[in-house]
Computed example of a mutant assay.
Amino acid sequence: MPNYNNLLVEETDGILYVTINRPKALNALNQETMGELEALFGSDYASRKDLKGVLITGAGDRAFVAGADIKEFLGVAAAGSGKEMATRGQDVFFLIERFHAPVIALVNGFALGGGCELAMACHMRVATEQARFGQPEVNLGIIPGYGGTQRLNQLIGKGKAIELTLTGNMLDAAEAHRIGLVNYTLPAAEARAKAIELLQTIGTKGPVAVAESIKAINAYYASSDFEEEAAAFGRASGTKDFAEGAAAFVEKRKADFKGE
Rank of each mutant, 00 (worst) to 15 (best):
N5T: 11
N5Y: 05
G14A: 01
G14K: 06
G14S: 12
G14F: 08
Y17C: 07
T19D: 03
I20V: 14
N21V: 05
K24W: 03
N27T: 09
L29H: 13
Q31R: 07
G35S: 02
L37S: 02
E38H: 15
L40G: 03
S43Y: 12
D44Y: 11
Y45F: 14
Y45V: 01
K49Q: 08
G53C: 04
G53F: 07
I56P: 04
T57M: 12
T57F: 04
T57S: 12
A59N: 10
A63W: 07
A63Y: 14
A66M: 14
A66V: 09
G67V: 03
G67R: 05
E72M: 11
F73S: 01
A77I: 04
A79F: 10
A79Y: 12
S81E: 13
S81T: 14
G82P: 00
G82R: 05
G82I: 04
K83P: 07
A86G: 11
R88C: 03
F93E: 00
L95V: 02
L95T: 00
E97S: 15
F99C: 10
A101Q: 06
P102M: 05
V103R: 08
V107Q: 14
G109T: 14
F110W: 15
G113R: 10
G113L: 08
G114S: 15
G115T: 00
G115M: 07
G115L: 01
C116T: 04
C116E: 12
C116R: 04
L118R: 02
L118W: 15
A119T: 01
A119W: 02
E129W: 07
Q130T: 12
R132E: 13
R132K: 15
P136I: 13
E137Y: 02
G141R: 02
G141N: 10
P144G: 12
P144V: 08
T149P: 14
Q150W: 01
Q154G: 02
L155P: 00
I156R: 01
K158Y: 14
K160A: 15
I162T: 14
T165W: 09
L166V: 10
L166C: 01
T167A: 09
L171G: 04
D172N: 11
A173R: 06
A174R: 06
E175P: 00
A176N: 00
H177Y: 03
I179Y: 03
N183F: 14
N183S: 05
A195P: 06
E197P: 10
L198S: 08
L198E: 06
L198T: 11
L199I: 11
L199S: 12
Q200T: 13
T201E: 14
T201Q: 13
G203H: 04
E212K: 11
S213E: 07
I214M: 09
K215F: 00
K215H: 03
K215C: 02
N218D: 07
A219S: 05
Y221M: 04
S223R: 08
D225C: 02
F226L: 13
A230M: 10
A231G: 00
A231T: 03
A232D: 08
G234C: 09
A236D: 09
G238D: 02
T239N: 03
D241C: 05
E244C: 03
A247E: 14
A247Q: 13
A247F: 13
E251Q: 14
K252H: 10
D256C: 03
